[in-house]
Design a binder for these strands. Sequence first.
RNA 1: CGGGGCAUAGCGCAGUCUGGUAGCGCGUCUGCUUUGGGAGCAGAAGGCCGGAGGUUCGAAUCCUCCUGCCCCGACCA
Length: 444
Amino acid sequence: MRLSRYFLPILRETPKEAEIVSHRLMLRAGMIRQESAGIYAWLPLGLRVLNKINAIVREEQNRAGAVELLMPVIQSADLWRESGRYDDYGKEMLRISDRHERDMLFGPTNEEMITEIFRGSVRSYKDLPLNLYHIQWKFRDEVRPRFGVMRSREFLMKDAYSFDLDAEGARHSYNKMFVAYLRTFARMGLTAIPMVADTGPIGGNLSHEFIILASTGESEVFCHQNFLSLPTAPASIDFDDRAVMQAEVDRWTHDYAATSDMHDAPRFDALPEEAKVSARGIEVGHIFYFGTKYSEPMGAVVNGPDGKAVPVQMGSYGIGPSRLVAALIEANHDDNGIIWPESVAPFDIGLANLKPGDGPTDAACQSLYAQFTDAGFDVLYDDRDERPGAKFATMDLIGLPHQVIVGPKGLAEGKVEVKNRRSGVREMLSLEEVVNKLVAGRKR
RNA sequence: CGGGGCAUAGCGCAGUCUGGUAGCGCGUCUGCUUUGGGAGCAGAAGGCCGGAGGUUCGAAUCCUCCUGCCCCGACCA
C-alpha cells in the first residue's frame, strides 16, 4: 500500500480527551475516530489490526473445535423475556422499537439467541458436544464509557457457546476454551493470567477471567510470580483428550491468582515474598460454565441415550477483540509510539522513501516493494513528499515491526537501512540482504 | 447514577471576569529554497464562537433553557 494513496489521518498533537496511552496513540496514529461517547469508527489502520486479531481468534477457536456462525446485532425482546433477562438486565441494555412498535434490543450478548438456534435444530445427544461462536458487534449502554475502545459502549466481541449432555462433558468444553484462550493471547505476545472470577449477570458457578498485567489496568490483581513464565501449550496439543485438557488447566490454575473482588488475602499473604505479584490488570477474556441456566427456561433439551429429554449443559466464552487492540498498545509502546507484535501488526514492513522523485531512490523502493510483496509481506510504502524526519516520526508512531529506510546517502554505497521498531537496532544492508533477512526472520 | 468541568478553524488553545469588526501555534493549499530524526521564507484558504431564547444601539463575552463531550466516584466484555 502506498501511503500517498492510503487514508492515515495522523495527529501531531494529542487530543485532550485521551487519558490513557492506548487511547492517545490510537487517535494519533489515525486508527479510530470517536463518533459519540463510547462509539468509534475504525479507520483503515485500526481495522487492519482488528482483523489480524480476529484471524488469530478464529484460528484458535477452530482449532479447539468451535464452529463459526453469525447472529444478528438486533434481537427481539421476546427472546429475552423467555430467559427472564429482559427485566433483569437493566439500563445497560439498549432497548429500541421498530416501526410496528415491537420491542427490540441491540444485543449485549447472545446466550438467548444461541439457545433458540440450538433448540430449533438439535434433538439428540449424538449431536453433542457442540460449540458455536461468532464475532459480532455488541452494545452495552455503559454509564460512563472511557479509555477509548477499552471501555466503549459499542464493542466487538467473539462469543462462543458450548452445549453438552452432562456436567463432565461441559467441563471438558470449558477446558478446551480455557486452553484455546491461553494460546490466543500468547500468539499476540500477551501474558494472560486466568483468574477465578465472579460470574455477574451471565450466571453460573465456574468462571475465569483472563487478565493481562498493565499499569493502566482497571482492576487490581494478585498472582503468583510463576504465571509470568508459564509456557503455553503447543498447537499440537490434543483438544479431544479430556485428561490432557484437564492437566493443562490444572497447570494454569495451580498457583494463586485473583482479582480484587475475589481476593483471598490470607492465602496471598502466605506466599513467599518474592512470589507475590500485585499489579493492575486488563480483562481481555472471560469464560463461564452455567449449566442449565438458559437451557432449562428456554427448553433447550436433547434426548439422551435412555430416550429421556434433558436440558443441555452450557457455557459461554468471550474475548473482546476491540478491547484487545487497546490492551496490546498498553503492553507495547514507548515514547515515540506503538510497537506492534508481528502477529497483529497492521503492516509487516514500513518502507520509507527519503527522497521521492529521485530516480535511483524511487527505483530501489519499487524493487523492494515488489520483492517484499511477492514474499507475502504487507508493506506500507511511504512515498509521500515529506521530509525524512516526518517519515521517521510517522513510522515510529504507527509502530510497524520493521522499517526499511531508503535514501540517496545509503544507496550511494548500495545500501539501505533496516530498523527494528522494538529493539531499535539499525543495520545498513544491501537490497538483497534486506529481503533475505526479513524473509528469514519471518520463518523463524 | 451522584459530583466537577469543558464546548471558539482539522488539532491544541487565547479572547469571556470588564459587551464594541474573530485571534495564536500546529496542520492544510500555492510558490521558491531545502531534504537521514516532525525545515525556512513569502503568500493564501479555512469560523452561523455547540443550539434556542432573552437583555442591549451592539453579544463569543451577560441571563435562561437545551444538547453534546470530558474527568472523579459507584457499576461493568
